[in-house]
Design a binder for these strands. Structure first.
Lengths: 375, 375
DNA sequence: AGCTGATCTGAATCGCTGC
DNA sequence: CGCAGCGATTCAGATCAGC
C-alpha cells in the first residue's frame, strides 16, 4: 500500500539515529517537560493548538526573574507578550528536536498569538511552506458591531528547513477538491452539534477543533503508519482522526478533565479499513518505464516517426531509444526541449504517434504497457 | 522575538497639538527619512504595503514552458531576517509617531513577512483589531504541485492602543455585504486587465494592488476629509481611491518610475464606475462544495458504497474523496464518465447512496450540507 | 457584431535521483 | 558536494486572432 508521494529514505538522513517511540498513547503532564523526555527525531508530524489567551495564562506564561513594578496596562501587556514568547520558544524548540528531519509541524492560532508563533518558527529555522486560512462557514457574529466578524483562524505549515523533503499528498488533495488544486483557504464549519463533546451538559473544551480540519491536515501531510504528536491534546481531536486514518498518535495534556474525555472519545473512534484509506497517487509514484523498454517489447518499432501534437516537428525512433531529427538526436525529453527552445520537456506528453484513432501521446503506450505488465 | 522594547504610553489626547500637514501630494524619498520630517499625530490612517522579503530561488517555469515573471526587484531583497526586522521596526516607529491617537494602521503581507510585521506591531504597542484575509479569486497556481496554492494575502488592522476610539463604519460595511456583517475574509480578484497599469507595454509595478481592496479599507475605517498616508506608494492605488472617496492622501515613494505613473493615474482618477462597484459587492461568492468536503465533515464515510440510479455500477468511497471500482479509481465525475463510456459526467446526479427513503443522488447530501452551514 | 479557441499572465520562498 | 538527466506540473480571467 504505497501511498507516499515522496520517499523519505535518504541514506544521509538515515545516519541520524531514529529512536522508536511508543505511540497511540496519552501523556499526562506539561508539554515542554514531557516532550523533553522523548528521543530526537522520532515524530513524523506535530499538530499544535497552543493556548493564546494572554490574560488567563498567568501560570503558564509567568516570566522568570523579578517582576517590574507595573503601574499601567501597557507594562503588563509587554510582560505578558515577552512571557508568551518565551513559552512559545521553549515548546517549539522541543518540537523541533523530536521532529524527524523530513517531518513537518502545523500550528493553529488567531491574530492574538499567530504572529508571535510564526515569527518564532522562522527564528528557530523552521521553513514556512504555507499559511492556511480556516474560513469558518458559520462563525460567531461580532455582537458589538465594532470590528469585522472574526470569521477565520490561521494555520502555519512548516518544515525543518528549506531543503527538507516533506510529505505532501498532492493528488489526494486535488481529488478531494473536485480536481482542482487545493488552495490555502479552507472553508469548513466550526465544531458543533453531535461532534461537540459535552461534559455534565456543558462543552468539554472551549476551543474544540472540528475533525474535518484535522482530517485534511493528516491526509495531506502524513502517510499511513506515521506518528503524529499533539502537544496540546485537549479533547483529542488529533488522536481520534489519526486513529480513523490509520496514523499513530501521541497526545500530551495537562488537564485531567480533558484527558478523560479524549481517551473515551478515541476508544470509540472507528478506524477505516485499508481499502478506504487508499488515496489517489501522483504520477510521480507510478513505476518508471524507460522509453527504450517500449521498443524492446515491440510497442514501438525503430524507424517509427513521432511528432508533436501540431505536427510541427518530426523525429525518428532509433533502436537504442533515442530520437533523431536530421543531425540532432537525444532522449525524448532532450529533443523535445531542444526543438521548443525550452529548458525542459516531458517527452512522454510532447511526442505523439499515429494510431487509427489519430495522433496520441506516447504516454498512452506507457499506460498500455503498465496495464499489461502490472500484477 | 528577543527582548521586548518598552514603549512609553501615549500622551493624553488633550495634550496633543495636532499640526496641520499639507496633503494630496507625493513625497519622493525613503519612507523612514520622509516620515521623520512629518509632525507628530497628523495622520488619520496609514495603509502600508511594505516589501515582502520573498526570498525566491531560481527561475520557475510553467508546465507549458513559459517562465514566471517573478518579483526580483532590489527593494525586496534583505540580507537576513534580522535586517528585515530592523527595517520593519524603524518604519513602524515613525508610523506610530505620526499617526493620530485614534488613527489606525493597515499593513498587507504574505506568510514571508506578515508574522514579523504583526509581532513588531504588537511589540511597539499597537493593538490589533482584526486580521483580514484577502482571498484571491484568481491566484497563480502552484505549478510544481509541491504545496497548497498560495491563494490569499493577509492584512492587519491595528489601533494605537487598546483604548483608542478608532473609526469603523459598521453600517457601510454591512450594506456593502448585502445586510450581513462584513467578515474578516474578503474575496476579491487580483489586479489585472484594464486596471493593471502598463509602462512601455509591461507592467508598471510588479505588485499593484486592486482598487477594490483599498476601496473597502478606506470606506470601512476613514471619514471623508481624513488624511491617509501610504509610505510605500508604488503606483498610487491608495491615492487614487482616496481621491475618489473624498479622502486626502499623502504618498511616499522612492522610485521615480513608479512615482510618475502614480501622479498621472491620480490626476486622471474619476469616480468609481459601476463595474468596479459590482466587483466590490460580489463578495458573497456562490457556495461551492467539493465532494471531498462531505467526507471530511462526516456526511459520507470512506468505505461507503455508491451506485448509479439503476444499480448497474457500484463504487467505494475512499479517504481522499476518490471512488474506486476494482482497479479503476478517480473523482465522482471521472469514474462516472468512465463506466458510461461518456466524455463527461455530473457525478453529483449520477452517483446515489442508500438512505432510509431509498436510493438518493449524492447531490442531496450537498444540499443538506449547504443548509447546515450557510448563514 | 458575435462567437470560438489560442495565448498570456499573476507577490512563487515550486523536484528527484544517481553519478 | 555539484552536476546532469529524467520527466512531472496549472487556475481564472483578460486579450486577441480568426471566422
Amino acid at each position: 500500500m504505497g501511498v507516499m508521494e515522496r520517499v523519505t529514505t535518504r541514506p544521509k538522513k538515515a545516519a541520524i539515529s531514529v529512536a522508536p517511540v511508543a505511540a497511540d498513547r496519552l501523556i499526562r503532564g506539561d508539554c515542554i517537560a514531557e516532550m523533553a523526555k522523548l528521543p530526537d527525531a522520532c515524530i513524523d508530524m506535530i499538530f499544535a493548538d497552543p493556548p493564546y489567551n494572554l490574560q488567563l495564562g498567568g501560570d503558564l506564561f509567568r516570566p522568570e526573574g523579578g517582576r517590574v513594578d507595573a503601574v499601567d496596562n501597557d507594562w503588563d501587556k509587554f510582560d505578558t507578550l515577552a512571557a508568551y514568547d518565551r513559552f512559545t520558544a521553549l515548546w517549539l524548540a522541543q518540537a523541533r528536536r523530536i521532529l524527524k528531519p523530513d517531518g513537518t509541524i502545523w500550528v493553529i492560532g488567531s491574530y492574538h498569538n499567530i504572529f508571535r508563533v510564526g515569527a518564532t518558527l522562522q527564528d528557530q529555522g523552521f521553513w514556512i511552506l504555507n499559511d492556511i486560512i480556516w474560513r469558518k462557514a458559520n462563525p460567531m457574529p461580532n455582537f458589538k458591531g465594532t470590528r469585522f466578524t472574526n470569521a477565520h483562524e490561521t494555520l502555519i505549515w512548516a518544515s525543518q528547513g528549506e531543503d527538507a523533503r516533506y510529505t505532501f499528498n498532492y493528488k489526494a488533495m486535488k481529488t478531494l477538491n473536485d480536481e482542482l488544486q487545493m488552495r490555502s483557504d479552507w472553508v469548513l464549519p466550526i465544531c458543533g452539534g453531535q461532534e461537540r463533546l459535552k461534559r455534565n451538559g456543558t462543552k468539554a473544551h472551549p476551543t474544540q477543533k472540528p475533525e474535518a480540519l484535522l482530517y485534511r491536515v493528516l491526509l495531506a501531510c502524513t502517510k499511513p503508519g506515521d506518528i503524529v504528536l499533539d502537544p496540546f491534546f485537549g479533547t483529542g481531536t488529533t488522536g481520534a482522526v489519526a486513529k480513523r486514518l490509520g496514523r499513530q498518535w501521541i497526545g500530551i495534556e495537562r488537564e485531567d478533565s480533558y484527558s478523560e474525555v479524549a481517551l473515551q472519545r478515541i476508544a470509540e473512534a472507528l478506524p477505516l479499513d485499508e481499502s478506504a484509506l487508499a488515496i489517489m497517487q501522483s504520477a510521480r509514484q507510478a513505476p518508471k518505464v524507460a522509453f527504450g523498454t517500449l521498443i524492446e517489447t515491440g510497442y514501438l518499432t525503430p524507424g517509427a516517426v513521432l511528432s508533436d501534437a501540431k505536427r510541427r516537428w518530426h523525429a525518428v525512433v532509433r533502436a537504442d531509444g533515442s530520437l533523431s531529427m536530421g543531425a540532432d538526436s537525444g532522449s525524448i525529453h532532450k529533443l523535445g526541449a531542444m526543438v521548443q527552445g525550452a529548458p525542459s520537456c516531458n517527452g512522454w506528453t510532447f511526442w505523439h504517434h499515429d494510431t487509427v484513432d489519430g495522433l496520441k501521446p506516447i504516454d498512452t503506450l506507457r499506460q498500455t504497457y503498465l496495464l499489461a505488465t502490472q500484477p
